[in-house]
Simulated scan of single mutants.
Amino acid sequence: MHEDSLNRFGIPRRVAQDDEMDGWFEVDDEVVDHAEAAYQRWQRDTKHPEPGVVPRVINTKPHGDAPRPRDRPARGSLADHTLGDQPDTSRLVEGALGD
Rank of each mutant, 00 (worst) to 15 (best):
S5L: 14
S5Q: 14
N7W: 07
G10E: 05
G10I: 01
P12A: 08
R13S: 02
R14G: 00
V15P: 07
A16C: 04
Q17F: 00
D18W: 00
D22F: 08
G23N: 12
W24Y: 13
F25P: 07
E30Q: 03
V31K: 07
V32P: 02
A35V: 10
A35K: 08
E36F: 15
E36W: 15
A37M: 10
Y39H: 09
Y39S: 06
Q40D: 15
R41F: 09
W42H: 02
Q43L: 11
R44Y: 15
D45V: 02
K47M: 11
K47P: 12
H48G: 01
H48D: 06
E50N: 01
P51Y: 04
V54H: 04
V54F: 01
P55E: 14
G64N: 12
D65P: 03
A66R: 05
P67C: 06
R68M: 11
P69Q: 05
P69I: 02
D71H: 05
R72D: 06
G76V: 02
S77L: 12
D80P: 00
T82Q: 03
G84P: 03
Q86T: 01
Q86C: 02
D88W: 01
R91E: 05
R91I: 00
L92G: 00
E94S: 15
E94R: 07
E94T: 00
A96M: 04
D99K: 06
D99C: 04
D99Q: 03
